[in-house]
Nucleic acid binder design. Sequence first.
DNA 1: CTGTTAGCGCGTTCAC
DNA 2: GTGAACGCGCTAACAG
Lengths: 336, 336
Amino acid sequence: MNITIRDVAMRANVSPATVSRVLNQSKPVSKAVREKVLRVVEELNFNPNSVARSLAMKESKLIGVVVPSIDSVFLSKFVNIIEEEFFKHNYTTLLCNTRCDDDVEKDYLRLLKDKYVDGIVLMTSHPKPHQIEFFEQVEIPAVFAGHTDPTKQFSSVNIDNYQAMYDATRYLLENGHRRIAFFGGPLIYRQAMERLSGYKQALAEYGVKYEESLMFANDYDIEHGYANGMELFQRADKPTAVCCVSDMVAVGAIKAAEEGGLSVPGDISIMGFDDIGLAKAYRPGITTIRQPIQELSVQAAEMLLNQIKQKEDYVKETRILSHEIIVRGSCMAVNG
Amino acid sequence: MNITIRDVAMRANVSPATVSRVLNQSKPVSKAVREKVLRVVEELNFNPNSVARSLAMKESKLIGVVVPSIDSVFLSKFVNIIEEEFFKHNYTTLLCNTRCDDDVEKDYLRLLKDKYVDGIVLMTSHPKPHQIEFFEQVEIPAVFAGHTDPTKQFSSVNIDNYQAMYDATRYLLENGHRRIAFFGGPLIYRQAMERLSGYKQALAEYGVKYEESLMFANDYDIEHGYANGMELFQRADKPTAVCCVSDMVAVGAIKAAEEGGLSVPGDISIMGFDDIGLAKAYRPGITTIRQPIQELSVQAAEMLLNQIKQKEDYVKETRILSHEIIVRGSCMAVNG
DNA sequence: CTGTTAGCGCGTTCAC
DNA sequence: GTGAACGCGCTAACAG
């Protein structure tokens, strides 16, 4: 049925081994023979069976990309870019959505090993015990994106989440705000914790007391931003500004504010995070912290590819990318 | 190094074949032996090598999902859901972003065949010649999502794009609009063509002349909606309403309108398409045509899985899902 | 029921 | 330089 390396060999009057050698350039082959083989390969439109190849070589040209969900503008953009990057280098992306379920993640990790993937990118909040255990056992190249590994056990690329949220909060403080809410993420995520710390630190530096009642720890989506806003904005002691953990949360918060008769930024300033495309198109434009998503993806891919190529010689690295505050219309100075 | 079926066999004093049999339940095995094998499997924490398995069986438990891009809320949602569906059935998703590049798509198709994928889902606008040629040659189960194949050559699941845009336009007409623009998609896509036809048909039934100058054929994103709006809304003969090919285009259009001093829906009504999460959260809420994205994904998966299971017995089917008009705030009656 | 043998298609020693 | 033989790990066919 399907044409194999033997067929090519017979047709070219050489041994399968020789065909393999020209195809992989693994050993010198006389020019005459090489050209003949190549011609037959063309004629028969032969392409080597990658599964057999994987079995023999224990590699697959497959990369596992593990994300909590792809149903988020930020993450889908990440996957989109990194997939392209891998494609350029002849690797295919195995998409692993964990749905924030550790069991699913474990299943996927086992499966990735099973398929001889050449490397794994984890866009995950923090290395959990099962991940650490996994990578101790299997020795597959890996890089964490969106997480900075303090133990330096893994390579990682990330922004400084602490500093980023510190900057965001400080921007608000500098604009005269003193009552600033925080619509954060689930605190089981290190990322969410770091951002919260940045927020607290900025407050502290300006002598503003941190108030539990202004802090929300929910998911990163519109719905939660809206829910938080609906709860908070009708209180008598409502804030004059809020730092959101994502632009989507900001969108939800803005909706809640306006439904409650508050104008943004007139009555309340709302700051986003990520700088997804919508942040610019929204009305008002959302002032936000830009994550360099493009770089994040590209560098994650690059680091993994290096790691695959260099094998044992590879020295783990942790890269911190710079964020940037993008000023648009959703925040203004108090009494400004 | 890694533990194999032979190791299990030796440890259990049986042959490799027997181990294979209990693992795959492919042939009856005496209870005693089975239990012993299972115990050893546990002890050694053995899991079978799926690559070797693929080579022997010519199947991979891999599904190729081919999409033009995942950097779109609608498509990423589609992928998100279908990936989960496949995961439930023990299949893993190979993500193939074609970036609307036929060469990339061809590469991916070849690669998918190469990896012995068990099936392919194509979320693509229309079967192009190279796709048809491919599937004629290789006999891999496939289903087209988001495209209805008039030739019945492939299985497909989709909404009725013609009817959907007809309904959208008609809704506007019934609300007194007579000057209605169309922010459509690239006309090389059958989907975009069908929607345009629906739009034209509705106009015709209401005796409204179709005007080329009110029709735009661009991409489905915010930027193009904005650009179209910026161009159109400052003309003296601007429309009182516009039908957009996606909610993102509607978002861009709304922005353009408001920047031009037009209020939505006061001065101009804007209708979206898809009903992504943002459509509800936006202000004004976007009146839109809902595509049953969840169903679309689930049914595409289901159809493919059936096809894989039933093999030759499978009869191709084309499913049309129903759309729905969701009325929110971005459209109002003329002089209403 | 169970063991033996022979591939699946390719890469790689080891001789020549 | 080139070919023969073996192995990657598993399943299927054929005996017994």
